[in-house]
Design a protein around this nucleic acid. Structure first.
Lengths: 220, 220, 220, 220
DNA sequence: GATGAATGAGGATTCATTCAT
DNA sequence: CATGAATGAATCCTCATTCAT
């Protein structure tokens, strides 16, 4: 990033104004993020965010019109992190693939953390809802597109609606991390992955894969 | 008390004091319900609820210690509506069964409506969280028990963790009504039901049922 | 009291209306008294008083226009209890006399109890202040009159203003019970009595008395 | 900013931020003081105090957590004003000394004014009660210590409990200003002083002083 | 008369937002 | 630009008082 470059060039140590401003904005975003997650959105005040970021209350309002806008910025910054790579179902053992994707996804969710705050806000903030919906749709599209290819290759159930399958996968994936709460045990991503596989692939396809893998493993 | 006498004499629906009070309580609950759903919990004030119920602010506090307690009452009143009958998987076409259960469940969810408010509150109200968790566990148990029986009868996948299956079913069921939002079309409960069936039953079992049903249909 | 008479005459057990009303009034006064003392005047609500008296809130307002009026009634009922007998200084050992009067006075103050509540109210309720002032003046007059007689008999200091002496005596008497708080020991009424005696009588008079008493004691 | 400029120019007491804040705090304290005295503590609202101080309601809460804390601050600020100098009984005409002390004390009490509010609060605020008791004990100690010295010099009554004497003096001193209310005439501090002297000194000691003073006066 | 539910004005307190410094 | 004190509308909740039963 240009900041570093400037530093490297041994420039005048005084970071340009824009830069300082940017840092403050970042600090505010970070503090907002932290506080939203730990105390909830409504319970967090602009003053607190500013204090936590080490700036004055008024400064908050220089960078963000209000709390809500900070949240939206936060989302825009982080929402792409949620994006999943388009899965290629041919390559390998799908159960393991999915299990690892699930785990990675939870990782990202936890980094973002905001999924705990959003349900509180979506109902009353249509703009926010729209932003999130866009993101979800994008992910949906990507997964659906992967499924369609798999479908064309005869890998999936013939009689299931792929939209519904996509939706189900996303739902299970998004909530996998909370399964523990209900079942009193650590989430077993592999089990969830197996469930997802049953939604996508008929047993013969799975069996096929397993034998392929078996062969590969044996040979390897 | 004269109330009872009047009741005994079979008078016209004389409304005893308790009854009146009860009506007011009900009105408040209803208004609270309505406003919580439409504006969100935090955005709703006790004053508004009272106004909507057609009573004075102070009256609100006669019946509920505060907003939170009204919500809890609301939940206690309605939570059992969420309870599902223990499914008997043998009886009939499971896809249709599940589809109808889903639709019924959505019906109930919509009646309750609070599922939109709860995510906002659960993180910051451990008591509430506990109440809900209890309810979820109860439903979980019931579904799991049904699945176990099916398992013993060899109807389910052999290699899936039944807990995970139960959790997946509940998750899909609870969110089926929101699928529309993501897919821009009316939720097709039958499709979701099919997905759920793939999670529970191997294809041969399903095929079996279908043939049974086919026979029955043909004969009937 | 007429209640008892009626009971004694074996009247119809149904206590006449006025009587019942009177009882309720009394109960309210008593409850008010109790609560004012234990919680303070401002902290006590009409509802509480009614509840404590075992009547409905509305009933309170049938008997008293408001809290304040109840307090005034309470005072009117009890203020005469504060009246002291006109002391006759000739009769006996004045120190003992005063000590016993002090103790008796404290007894009465404690029965009344309201002296804890009054300072809270006097500044803002001129009527109440007036009532109390009247009472104080009456007592003042009585003591002053006693002192004047003693003065005429040459028993008191010649050069002290009797009004001031009266006031001092009253002040010490009224507060004797609180001396303990400051001195961390039980109030020694005899010590206070001695102080009061120094205010009233010159030492020779006291000595005289003591010898008289000495003689009497010895002879008795 | 112009402030700094003004400072640099060495202008007259420029008021820095802290100072401004301090002024506001002072204004609030003063308004609180005034209103507590004129309307009573309970009858005064934070809003009123703020309004009287010419600031917004919220500003009140920037400087004080609540009404009670403002009162405590008021006390802490003023309580030392109540402290009396340790009296030296040898020096001069004790009656005049005491009379002037009384007048000075009343002056201070009136400046403080809070003695009218405190009785209302002490019963229900143990912390406040403690603060006041500490102050009273300090004064008590000081007076007692003076008396003890006088006692050792044979100036006081031999047979009076010095604690009780101290307590009596304080009581009379604290209430001297209210004597007028009961006696319908301006308080004559000299009369009260004489009374106090009778409590402390036997007549011969007083006579002695008077002759000394007589001599001095004649000579002077 | 008695009841106690209902009322709603009013007090304490918070917090998003502004603005003089 | 940054600051943070100041603002005052808006909340929560209480309680004196009324009034239908």
């Amino acid at each position: 990033m240009s900041d570093r470059e400037e530093l490297l060039v041994g420039r005048f140590p005084f970071v340009p104004k824009q830069e300082r401003a940017h840092q403050k904005r970042e600090a505010l975003l970070e503090s907002g993020h932290k506080l939203f997650i730990s105390k909830g959105y409504e319970q967090t005040t602009a003053k607190e965010i500013a204090a936590d970021a080490g700036v004055a209350t008024g400064t908050f309002y220089r960078y963000f019109s209000d709390k809500r806008q900070l949240l939206l910025s936060l989302l825009e910054d982080q929402i792409e992190k949620l994006m999943v790579p388009e899965p290629c179902w041919r390559t390998s053992d799908p159960e393991r693939l999915i299990a690892s994707l699930l785990e990675a996804h939870e990782q990202r969710l936890n980094e973002i953390g905001l999924h705990r705050v959003l349900p509180e806000l979506v109902p009353k903030d249509p703009e926010l809802a729209e932003v999130l919906m866009q993101a979800k749709r994008a992910i949906h599209e990507r997964i659906l597109s992967g499924l369609k290819k798999a479908y064309e290759q005869g890998l999936t159930w013939k009689d299931l609606d792929l939209e519904t399958v996509t939706w189900s996968m996303m739902l299970l994936a998004e909530n996998a991390h909370e399964k523990a709460k209900q079942c009193d045990e650590k989430t077993d991503y592999h089990q969830v992955a197996k469930v997802i596989c049953r939604i996508v692939f008929p047993p013969d396809v799975i069996k096929n894969w397993q034998s392929v893998e078996f062969n590969r493993d044996n040979r390897g």
